[in-house]
Amino acid sequence: MSQYKIEAGTGQHPGDRQEQQDRVALFGAAKAPGFMMAVLADGMGGRTGGAMAAEQVIRTARQLFDEFSPLTGDIDAMLHTIAIEAHTIIKLSGLTVEKEPHSTLVVLVLTPSGSAHWAHAGDSRLYRYRGAAFAERTIDHSFVERLIEQGRLRPEEAANHRLSNILVNVLGSLREEPYITLGRHDGLQAGDAFLLCSDGLWHYFSDEEMGAAIAANSPRQLSELLIGQARQRAAGNKADNCTMAVVKLTAL
């Protein structure tokens, strides 16, 4: 068994938007003791449609996690099914609303054997830290990331690029089927931490800034600190919804 305990929390702010279209949640698994899930979705496509799309991601994740058993199921297969089922329902629901709803997805599952599994679609991110040290993060499914991969854009230019909000992969699209990128890390230990967040948060921080804040604060303190700083740094702009979930592994 793993020699750590899990501390987790979530935080949200609507930014300068009229409605909160992000959704975030933390779950235990009914049939898988010791497993936990964090899931975050950034809904888009009109006020009502965006919120509906993100809510559907959370609802689908919870339902499939409740049904998951490590004796008969595979975590990566479950993560893939969450994305595909949510995509299908959002797409069908879009036929009844004014605008095309769609959503990002980032989901993390921790196991009692000390492994972490995650998946994402879109530009909501997962960061992994060991103490304050940045270890890795997901790569956005965005137009600017494609430009970076092709050598046509430098990474430091991405955040302020005029097309930085254009995504190439989302759940709910009527034109293209989504793809999901999977990740895994084994050997979890006390001091490890994960941050899931929407672009309304990560846009305002470097990887190193967030690592220092995660290491020095409890989940609740961290949520208040990062969201407060994001609001200050967004002053003068029409800031997006700001949403996060943090999962920290601390010594017993």
Rank of each mutant, 00 (worst) to 15 (best):
L79N: 01
M1P: 12
S113A: 12
L153T: 03
H13W: 09
L108H: 11
K5E: 13
A159G: 01
E19Y: 07
S2T: 14
S223C: 14
A213C: 05
L201P: 08
L195Y: 09
H87M: 06
R175E: 15
L226P: 03
R62V: 13
A135P: 00
H87I: 08
A135E: 13
L188K: 02
M44S: 06
E208V: 14
D16Q: 10
H203N: 13
R154P: 00
P155E: 03
E209M: 10
L249N: 05
P178Y: 07
C242F: 04
F143I: 07
N165C: 04
G228P: 04
S218V: 06
Q3E: 14
G34C: 04
Q221K: 05
G122C: 01
V109F: 10
T48E: 15
S2C: 09
H87G: 06
D140S: 05
R220W: 02
V107I: 15
I6E: 02
Q150D: 14
A215F: 01
G9W: 03
T243V: 01
Q21H: 08
D66M: 09
V170Y: 00
A86H: 05
S218D: 12
L95M: 11
W202F: 15
P101F: 08
D207I: 00
D207L: 04
A230G: 01
G114R: 04
G122P: 03
M44Y: 07
A32D: 11
D42Y: 10
F68C: 12
S218R: 02
G191H: 01
E67S: 14
A216Q: 11
G114W: 06
A116F: 00
S115K: 12
Q18A: 14
N217F: 01
Q63R: 08
E136R: 14
A133F: 10
I139D: 10
G11W: 06
D186R: 06
M52E: 13
A86F: 03
C197D: 01
A213D: 09
A53H: 06
R220I: 04
T60E: 14
Q150S: 15
H87A: 06
V106S: 08
E55G: 15
Y4L: 11
C197E: 00
D207K: 11
L105I: 07
Q232C: 07
F194A: 01
W118V: 03
F205S: 05
C242V: 13
S103E: 02
A159L: 10
R152V: 01
G191K: 03
F27V: 12
A119E: 00
E98V: 07
S206E: 13
L40Y: 05
Q21G: 08
E100Q: 14
G151F: 13
G94D: 10
H120S: 02
I58Q: 05
D66P: 04
